[in-house]
């Protein structure tokens, strides 16, 4: 029983990160109809910048803030000068474009930081806490807390503020939004900035649980994308639930079947779900054609 609880806790921690990545995908997708495959690289950049700033002697929390701001800037610049300029709305071209950007960022990162892994100090001490026989790393609690704060913050932003209403307006009907004096271009840039910021924070809080290196972003990004597909493209709640589900599937299969096969099992579940329901579990706004 404690074993099972332990796996569930582990699953919720990684699932929370997938949920944030997935929420980032959806935030961008709903406004600009782009599946942004660089989402995972935002996490990598967040972690690596923080490590670098701390290495330069900047205090821990200042480093984190600087890293997040820098990644937000990168996200916004990327949207304004590259993705926003592409004159195509074909999902395959867009996916190739953002994959290109993502391996470009990864290559630059390997050039600057090399291939060695880096360690980041946890927010509080390294000693795990014991609750009812389950040992939880203190950092895991910080991860869960961060996930909750980010997701609530995102919900508040999109549902309760005027800015969120503007973003929603653009995702429903860009033409009409423009007539109401909202600039879709600005909202798209904002969506990229928000996603980049969320990704960077997620990347920073999980870095201490493991090591971080130039290539951690790819798999995290793919898992987040998998959560988006599993939940149904364009459906934020579905994607978040799917993110947690994916984390649980992985941690349970790592515990009970084989840790080497955990990713393969998670991806097999994804394919099986697509066989049964080609538009994800919670379906979506527009069907089939990649949502376009």
């Amino acid at each position: 029983m404690t074993e099972l609880l332990q796996y569930i806790v582990n699953g919720l921690v990684s699932g929370g990160i997938y949920a944030i990545v997935a929420a980032g995908f959806i935030t961008i997708y709903n406004v600009s109809k782009v599946i942004n495959m660089t989402q995972g690289e935002f996490l990598m950049l967040g972690g690596m910048f923080t490590v670098t700033f701390i290495g330069a002697g900047i205090p821990y929390f200042v480093s984190i803030i600087l890293a997040v701001l820098l990644v937000i800037l990168i996200g916004a610049v990327m949207q304004k000068f590259i993705i926003g300029q592409a004159k195509t709305n074909n999902p395959i071209s867009l996916i190739i474009l953002t994959i290109g950007l993502s391996i470009f960022i990864k290559g630059i990162a390997s050039f600057f930081w090399g291939k060695d892994p880096y360690a980041l100090e946890p927010i509080t001490s390294n000693d795990p806490i014991n609750i009812a026989g389950i040992s939880i790393a203190q950092q895991s609690l910080w991860v869960i807390l961060t996930v909750i704060v980010i997701l609530i913050g995102l919900w508040y932003l999109t549902e309760k503020t005027l800015l969120g209403k503007k973003i929603n307006a653009c995702s429903v009907n860009q033409q009409a939004a423009r007539l109401m004096g909202i600039s879709p271009a600005k909202m798209m840039m904002l969506a990229f900035a928000v996603s980049a910021g969320m990704g960077a924070i997620a990347g920073i809080v999980i870095a201490p649980l493991n090591v971080t290196s130039y290539d951690v972003g790819t798999l995290l990004g793919v898992k987040g994308f998998a959560a988006v597909i599993l939940g149904g493209v364009g459906n934020p709640l579905g994607a978040i639930i799917a993110g947690f589900a994916l984390g649980l599937i992985e941690s349970l299969s790592a515990g009970y079947i084989s840790s080497g096969l955990k990713d393969a099992i998670a991806f097999m579940v994804l394919i099986v779900v697509l066989l049964v329901k080609p538009t994800g579990i919670f379906s979506e706004r527009s069907v089939g054609k990649g949502g376009l």
Binding site: I35, P91, I92, G291
Partner: peptide, 11 residues
């Protein structure tokens, strides 16, 4: 098709 196909082949 589209993004779903991309994900399935990626997986």
């Amino acid at each position: 098709s589209g993004y779903y196909l991309a994900m399935a082949t990626l997986a």
